[in-house]
């Protein structure tokens, strides 16, 4: 099903004409319309603003973690449960082959239809999700396998049960424990990187970001309702928060921007997955050359050096 975002309105008309042409029209007309559609789409996607990028990042057809698992890896074996409380469906983890390299893969999973969305809790993990992720990462460390994490969450779940079981503690522990892992870690922001809920599985040696994904301290709506007292100012908030891949590369928060197909990852998931796989392979091969000490130090320093402040000698 084609789904158009508000800023893609102009595309709808052409799409309609194209569909009519496909049923009744001539081959020539179809080709012309297809070209027109592609050109216009390219024009729109060349100039997306921050808020529009956020909308692409949350596009209902955007490939989710398990789509990439199918497209990039082989022989995925999923592991379940945190061994303390339960099995969080918003985080999926296990082991798989990346070409011939066995790797640990963990990611936040959103649902496509209503039923699946509820099953996945809209991609919002609870403490048991973070604890499951950590358990699997520790397994990877034990068996010396590199870890790949895929981030796609609006945020950690804000609910009574999550608080009772220590949402904050679970995330905090992951931050500390991930920083000490003795194997390479690569994190990829594939859609929404929602604050601490995202960072909880993203303390990595390399953080990559798909071109139209976002990684933010707060959602644009949340920021707008706090700082403007008006959640409809999300557009302005998005501009101020500078949460796009391009900005974050400049701030040193991420290491690499992975280009998306024109029209976003959902326009061509196969191409997206191929591009991403290539990038992952490059980074993983680099990291596999490092010693354990180098891996741990590299990750520590990567985060140690983030932050902008003045140092005034008194």
């Amino acid at each position: 099903m084609a789904y158009f975002l508000p800023f893609e309105k102009e595309l709808v008309e052409i799409q309609k004409k194209l569909e009519t042409a496909k049923t009744f029209g001539k081959k020539q007309d179809i080709e012309k319309l297809e070209k027109e559609l592609a050109n216009l789409r390219e024009k729109i996607y060349k100039n997306l603003n921050e808020w529009q990028i956020a909308q692409v990042a949350r596009h209902p057809n955007r490939p989710y973690f398990l789509d990439y698992v199918n497209l990039i890896f082989k022989d995925f074996v999923e592991l379940h449960g945190d061994r303390y409380f339960g099995d969080d469906k918003a985080i999926v983890g296990g082991f798989a082959f990346l070409d011939d390299i066995p790797v640990c893969v963990i990611g936040q999973q959103k649902g496509r239809d209503t039923k699946e969305k509820i099953f996945r809790n809209f991609g919002m993990p609870k403490p048991e999700g973070y604890r499951k992720a950590l358990r699997i990462m520790k397994l990877a460390e034990k068996f010396k396998k590199p870890i790949l994490t895929f981030v796609d969450t609006p945020g950690a779940y804000p609910g009574i049960d999550a608080e009772e079981r220590g949402q904050a503690e679970a995330i905090a522990r992951n931050l500390k424990e991930m920083s000490k892992l003795r194997v390479p870690v690569i994190s990829i922001i594939i859609g929404e990187g929602g604050s601490g809920g995202a960072l909880g599985i993203a303390v990595a040696n390399r953080v990559l970001m798909l071109e139209y994904s976002i990684y933010s301290v707060i959602s644009p709506e949340g920021c707008a309702s706090i700082l403007w007292k008006d959640s409809s100012k999300a557009n302005e908030a998005a501009r101020s928060l500078k949460f796009t891949a391009k900005h974050l590369k400049q701030f040193g928060v991420i290491d690499d921007v992975i280009p998306e197909p024109i029209g976003g990852a959902h326009a061509d998931p196969g191409l997206m997955a191929a591009t991403l796989k290539k990038a992952i392979l490059e980074h993983i091969k680099e990291l596999l050359n490092l010693s354990v000490t180098e891996i741990v130090n590299d990750r520590y320093l990567r985060f140690r050096n983030i932050g902008e402040f003045l140092e005034v000698k008194s």
Binding site: L175, I226, K242, F251, I306
Partner: peptide, 18 residues
């Protein structure tokens, strides 16, 4: 975390925890 410093604030969580 401080919203006005965006993801830089978020990263401080990892930095301090590490």
């Amino acid at each position: 975390a401080r919203m006005m410093e965006g993801a830089l604030s978020l990263m401080q969580m990892a930095k301090v925890s590490a």
